[in-house]
């Protein structure tokens, strides 16, 4: 359950990165449609957080002792888009779009770590 959802969130986040990156490239601020896109990806991350917590509650644990790390990664993932959305509201230029693109890219990168930690690779911390 964790793996397919992780891939879905990562792909959606990368699409959002490309979309907002394109807006920044074209010297445009983020528009309502972009915020709708952020909302959709945010819902996916919240679903991921919920599923992760349910899995933990049902007694499934990440391999190794990575439970706390796993939960903090899921929370960090869910926080990415709200933070950049607020920043972009205050920066109605291409740099607001670039910030959202960067936040979505970070979100996608965090998915690698989520999958890693679930599989037991707590190494990086």
């Amino acid at each position: 359950m964790i793996a397919p959802l992780t891939v879905a969130v990562a792909v959606a986040a990368l699409l959002l990165t490309a979309w907002c990156g394109y807006a920044a490239f074209r010297n445009q601020a983020v528009k309502d449609w972009h915020y709708l896109g952020m909302g959709i990806v945010l819902l996916l991350t919240l679903a991921q957080l919920t599923v992760g917590l349910v899995q933990l509650a049902r007694g499934e644990r990440p391999a190794g002792d990575g439970t706390a790390v796993f939960v903090s990664y899921l929370v960090a993932v869910a926080l990415c888009l709200p933070v950049v959305a607020i920043v972009s509201l205050g920066e109605r230029t291409r740099w607001g779009s670039a910030t959202v693109a960067a936040g979505a890219l970070v979100l996608a990168a965090l998915q690698i770590r989520v999958a890693d930690v679930w599989a037991g690779g707590v190494g990086g911390g």
Partner: peptide, 12 residues
């Protein structure tokens, strides 16, 4: 502001 906003976010 401007590019600085992006930098602040990423550094944050």
């Amino acid at each position: 502001t401007g590019p600085g906003r992006l930098l602040v976010t990423v550094y944050g």
